[in-house]
Computed example of a mutant assay.
Amino acid sequence: MPDASTLSLRTSFRPGETWTDTNGNRIQAHGGSIIHVDGVYYWYGENKEHSTPGSGIWHWGVRCYSSTDLYNWEDRGLIIPPDENDPTSPLHPEQFLDRPHIMYNSRTGKFVCWIKVMTKHQSEQRSTVLEADSILGPYTIVNSWLRPLGMHAGDFDLVQDPEDGKGYYYFGRVHFEMICADLTDDYTDVTGYYSTHFPRRQPPFVREAPSYFRRDGRHYLITSGTTGYYPNPSEVAVADTYHGPFRVLGDPHPTDESRTSFHTQISSIFKVPGKKDLYITLGDRWVPHYTDDSSRALAAFEAHFAPENEGHVTPIEEFATIDTSQADYVWLPIRFEGEMAYIDWREEWSLDEFE
């Protein structure tokens, strides 16, 4: 372990570089999000430290880090540990647990966490919901193996209305379309009211990884195509209400010649408190070696979207060949022109650049 006393504090973001915590260890918060609680930022996500090829381990729980400046992160440990003893548990390390999202419910006084779990053997995608009294846990399962609205639920985002606290659940109805479903008052289930968006005939065109943000009363979703861990062009859409209808505005990465969203998939978008108009996209670079050769990345993208490959779904076995323990992060600010949201590449940037 590196000597923490010799580590210098970060004063900027350096997208794509290996990001370490205040102890000098690689940060493990993949598919992550940020929640701001009592003046402290908490970054949480999938702990992939043991998810090496051949290990059979998809995750090792949900890990959380805290910070007061968004640059330097203290490891706060596993807020949701894996369940090593029960292979049927959604928290077992061989279950395909992804993309935790947490919201605080002021009505119940609970922190509510939703996770997506794709079963190892049945290839179904379902949701599991947990609750805790503190952002750092301990979390208890309150609703497991949920099929919201009777559907297979893939990548998702949770949204809370800033005025009335109502909750919304954007999720991919796997390989069909995107769903916006109203949450119950306690955020632990859906009410049954929902709307459908972005119907596409099949992968890789079906949208996944919805990342929501709200700006000037408008509702935005940035999504990606369905190509497994391999990156593809993002797509931004806007609506006047949570339930749409959404209008597709286009690729927010127009300067990226590789058409891979700068080799990332966006997992969530964070509005920085105290900043006038700063929204940060939190992206995962699941396959860092693709950046070694941009032509290789472009070729992979073109292969996924070639007509003869329409309808291709990346097999689960292929996921196991990716060393996600070495995945990196790309955090970039959003730039706005009118209603369009753009994401520009920056080798380095800081919060001080924004009002």
Results as ranks from 00 to 15, higher is better:
4 A>S: 15
6 T>L: 06
9 L>S: 13
10 R>F: 00
18 T>M: 02
20 T>M: 05
21 D>L: 00
21 D>W: 02
21 D>V: 00
24 G>E: 02
26 R>H: 10
28 Q>P: 05
29 A>H: 03
29 A>I: 03
30 H>L: 09
39 G>I: 05
43 W>K: 07
51 S>Q: 02
53 P>L: 02
56 G>F: 09
58 W>G: 05
60 W>R: 03
62 V>L: 04
64 C>E: 12
68 T>R: 08
68 T>G: 10
74 E>R: 08
74 E>D: 07
74 E>L: 13
77 G>C: 13
81 P>N: 11
85 N>Y: 01
87 P>L: 08
93 P>R: 05
93 P>W: 04
95 Q>K: 09
99 R>Y: 05
100 P>K: 04
101 H>S: 15
102 I>N: 13
104 Y>R: 00
106 S>M: 06
107 R>A: 12
113 C>Y: 12
117 V>T: 11
119 T>L: 13
125 Q>E: 15
128 T>M: 05
130 L>S: 09
132 A>W: 10
137 G>R: 14
140 T>N: 15
142 V>S: 12
142 V>I: 04
143 N>T: 04
144 S>C: 11
147 R>G: 06
149 L>R: 12
151 M>Y: 15
156 F>S: 15
164 D>V: 10
167 G>R: 05
169 Y>G: 11
174 V>Q: 13
174 V>C: 14
181 A>M: 12
182 D>Q: 14
186 D>C: 06
191 T>C: 15
202 Q>I: 12
203 P>S: 03
204 P>L: 04
205 F>G: 11
213 F>P: 04
220 Y>S: 11
226 T>C: 11
229 Y>I: 08
231 P>N: 07
237 A>T: 03
238 V>R: 07
239 A>P: 10
240 D>N: 14
242 Y>E: 09
243 H>P: 08
249 L>Y: 11
257 E>M: 03
258 S>F: 03
261 S>Y: 01
270 F>W: 02
270 F>M: 08
273 P>N: 13
274 G>A: 06
276 K>N: 01
277 D>A: 02
279 Y>I: 04
280 I>Q: 04
282 L>W: 08
285 R>F: 00
291 T>V: 01
294 S>D: 05
295 S>V: 07
297 A>R: 13
298 L>A: 08
299 A>S: 11
299 A>T: 14
299 A>N: 09
306 A>R: 10
314 T>F: 08
316 I>K: 09
322 I>T: 14
324 T>E: 04
325 S>N: 09
326 Q>E: 01
326 Q>V: 02
336 F>Q: 07
340 M>Y: 12
340 M>R: 12
342 Y>S: 09
347 E>C: 00
